[in-house]
Design a protein around this nucleic acid. Structure first.
Length: 541
DNA sequence: CGTGTCACG
DNA sequence: ACGTACGTGACACGG
C-alpha cells in the first residue's frame, strides 16, 4: 500500500455508483478499451461518444486515430505521454509515488482531451453528413465487440501441441531432403540464403525481383518452378507451409489462452482499416488457416464448450452481389436471383460454353476475373494471378467488358468521381477521401483509382455485417436464446450455442444477416447466408 | 526496424 | 515507358 492511497475496494465502492449514472461517462477515446477494463471490476457503462470513432467516420484513411495524434491535429495540443510523466530509474516506492501523481495528471489530461476533441469533431460530423454513419455503424459496435472479446473462444492446447510435433517431424524430413538436393545445409527460413542456392548455385531461372532488387523466392515463383517439374522447389513450398502453420499458429496460439477463462480473447480494432472492415490482433483470429488440409487441422482446434456447438454463418459472394447492385448488371442480378454458380455463369458468358459442362480451368479463370474486377482489374495483375501472358489477360478483360458493359461504365464513372471530387462512398454513406489523387503521378493515380473502385464494394460488405452484428445481440435476447456471438471474419460470424439451440440460432442468424441492409438500403439482389453447426470451427465452416 | 513471405477475407 | 491487382496482421531474418 502506497501512502495516501485508499484501499482498492473502498475506491471501487465509491466509484461504482458514479458509473451507474450513465451521464458521468459521456465521452471517451477508444471506449471499448475502457469498457473492457471497467468490466473486470463489475462496472457496466453505457458508452456514449467516442472521439476515436468520430475521427474514423470522418476520415478512415488517416493512418492514426490515437488520442495523441488527434490532439495534435485537431487541437494543436501536444499531449502528455505516460512515459514522460512517470520517469525512470527510481526505486519501487519512489516510482510508485511518482506514478500515482503522474497517472492522475495523465488520466485527467486524457479525459480533458477527449472532451476537447468531441467539441471539435461533433460539429464536423454534422457538417460532413457523417453523423448517421457514426451513430449507426461505428458507435454501436463498441459494446458488441467488447462482449465478443470478453467471451473469447475455446482453443484446444493439446491439439495444437500434437500438431506442432507432427509439423516438426515433417519439416525435419523435408529439410534433410532439401539439404541433400542442395549439396549443403543452410537457413531455410532465410529468403536471401534460399535465393543464393536456387538462382546462384543451382542456376535456376529467376522469374521475379523483389522491391529491393533481390531474387524473389515467393510462392508464385516457386510454384512456377514446381509445375515445371522442379522437386526441390516443391519441397521448399511444403516446408514453408509447415513452418508458417507451426510458428504462427500451433506454437503461438497456446500462449494466448487466458489462464482465468481457458479461452483465447482476440482484440478487434474498429479504426484500423481504410474501408470500414475490422482488424483482429493478439492473436489475429481473422486469418486462421482454411484453404488446405494441413491448415484446417489448426482450425479444428477451435472448439465449442461442452454441451455447445460452434455455428459459422457466412455471406455467400457478398462482394459480387454488391457489385451487381451498385453497377446494376442485369446478367449478374438475374444469376443471383436464380442462385446460379456465378463464376460458371461468367465463364459461360465469356467463352460461350454451357454452364452445365464447364471445364474447371475455364471456371477458375472466370473466378479470377470476377475477383480482379472487385480489386479494380489490371492486365498485369490478372496475368500474374493466372500465370498467363499479359496479352492474354488483356484479351480476357476486353472480352469481359464486351459482355458486361455496365461494369466498365461503373469503373469509368468511379474513376471520374474520384478524380473530380477526391472521394467515393458506400451505399450506406460511408465516405472515403483520396486527397492525394489530384497531385499524383500516373502510377500513383492508378493505385488510388483501384482503391476507389474497391472501397465502395468492400466497404458496403463491411457496413452490412456491422448492421447484422449490432442487431444480433438484441435479436438473440428477444428470441430467448442464450447463444453468444464470438468472432467476425469479414463476411462470417461465429456463434457458440447450447446444443438444443443450434437450429434456432442458425435460423435467426440467417434472417438477421440476410435482412441487414434494410431499411436503410434495399438491394436489387438477394443476400445469401450459409450456416452450419459443429463441434469445431473447421466442420462448422 | 525494414523486408520478405504468407495466413485470411 | 512505367509498374499495379483490394484490405489486413504475424513471423523470421538480418542490419
Amino acid at each position: 500500500m502506497v501512502e495516501g492511497q485508499i484501499p482498492f475496494d473502498a475506491a471501487l465502492a465509491r466509484l461504482k455508483p458514479l458509473f451507474e449514472d450513465a451521464a458521468i461517462l459521456k465521452i471517451a477515446h477508444n471506449m471499448k478499451h475502457d469498457l473492457l477494463v471497467l468490466s473486470r471490476y463489475g462496472i457496466d457503462v453505457a458508452p456514449i461518444d467516442d472521439a476515436m470513432l468520430m475521427s474514423y467516420a470522418l476520415d478512415s484513411g488517416r493512418g492514426d486515430h490515437r488520442l495523441e495524434e488527434l490532439a495534435r491535429n485537431y487541437c494543436g495540443h501536444e499531449a502528455l505521454t505516460f512515459a514522460s510523466v512517470t520517469g525512470a530509474g527510481r526505486n519501487f516506492l519512489g516510482f510508485a509515488r511518482a506514478a500515482l501523481t503522474a497517472a492522475t495528471e495523465y488520466a485527467a489530461e486524457q479525459a480533458d482531451i477527449s472532451l476537447r476533441l468531441w467539441r471539435v469533431l461533433k460539429p464536423r460530423l454534422l457538417a460532413e453528413r457523417m453523423t448517421t454513419v457514426y451513430e449507426t455503424l461505428e458507435r454501436p459496435m463498441v459494446a458488441t465487440l467488447a462482449r465478443m472479446e470478453r467471451r473469447g473462444v475455446m482453443v484446444e492446447r493439446a491439439t495444437l501441441s500434437r500438431l506442432s510435433g507432427e509439423f516438426a517431424q515433417d519439416m525435419a524430413r523435408l529439410e534433410a531432403e532439401i539439404f541433400e538436393l542442395a549439396g549443403e545445409s543452410f537457413n531455410l527460413g532465410s529468403p536471401k540464403q534460399l535465393g543464393d542456392i536456387l538462382f546462384g548455385k543451382m542456376g535456376l531461372p529467376g522469374a521475379k525481383k523483389t522491391a529491393t532488387g533481390a531474387w524473389s523466392t515467393s510462392a508464385s515463383v516457386l510454384e512456377d518452378l514446381a509445375v515445371a517439374g522442379n522437386d526441390f522447389s516443391r519441397r521448399i513450398l511444403d516446408w514453408r507451409q509447415l513452418s508458417k502453420l507451426k510458428s504462427t499458429y500451433a506454437d503461438a496460439l497456446p500462449g494466448y489462452i487466458n489462464a482465468e477463462t481457458g479461452r483465447v480473447h482476440t482484440s478487434y480494432a474498429l479504426a484500423a482499416t481504410t474501408t470500414g472492415r475490422l482488424s483482429s490482433s493478439e492473436p489475429n483470429l481473422q486469418n486462421i488457416p482454411v484453404r488446405n488440409e494441413a491448415g484446417r487441422k489448426i482450425r479444428k482446434a477451435f472448439v465449442s464448450a461442452p454441451g455447445h456447438v460452434l455455428i459459422s454463418a457466412d455471406y455467400s459472394q457478398i462482394e459480387l452481389r454488391l457489385l451487381a447492385h451498385i453497377a446494376d448488371i442485369p446478367q449478374l442480378r438475374r444469376a443471383f436471383a436464380e442462385n446460379l454458380d456465378i463464376h460458371a455463369m461468367t465463364a459461360s458468358e465469356m467463352f460461350n460454353v454451357p454452364i452445365k459442362d464447364m471445364p474447371p480451368e475455364t471456371r477458375r479463370r472466370a473466378k479470377a476475373i470476377n475477383f480482379g474486377i472487385i480489386y479494380g482489374i489490371s492486365a498485369f495483375g490478372l496475368a500474374n494471378q493466372l500465370s498467363i501472358p499479359r496479352e492474354e489477360a488483356s484479351a480476357y478483360i476486353k472480352r469481359y467488358f464486351e459482355r458486361f458493359p455496365g461494369i466498365r461504365d461503373y469503373m469509368d464513372s468511379t474513376r471520374k468521381t474520384v478524380r473530380e471530387k477526391g472521394e467515393v462512398s458506400t451505399i450506406f454513406g460511408r465516405v472515403y477521401h483520396f486527397p492525394g489523387i489530384s497531385s499524383a503521378n500516373a502510377s500513383d493515380r492508378a493505385f488510388y483509382e483501384r482503391a476507389a473502385i474497391n472501397a465502395p464494394i468492400q466497404g458496403a460488405a463491411a457496413d452490412i455485417i456491422r448492421r447484422a452484428m449490432i442487431r444480433m445481440d438484441d435479436a438473440l435476447a428477444r428470441a430467448g436464446l442464450s447463444a453468444q456471438m464470438l468472432l467476425q471474419v469479414h463476411d462470417e460470424l461465429v456463434f457458440e450455442a447450447p446444443n438444443d439451440e443450434a437450429e434456432a440460432t442458425i435460423e435467426l442468424a440467417r434472417r438477421v444477416m440476410e435482412q441487414a441492409p434494410a431499411p436503410a438500403v434495399h438491394l436489387a439482389v438477394p443476400l445469401k447466408v450459409d450456416a452450419r453447426a459443429a463441434a469445431n470451427w473447421d466442420e462448422a465452416h
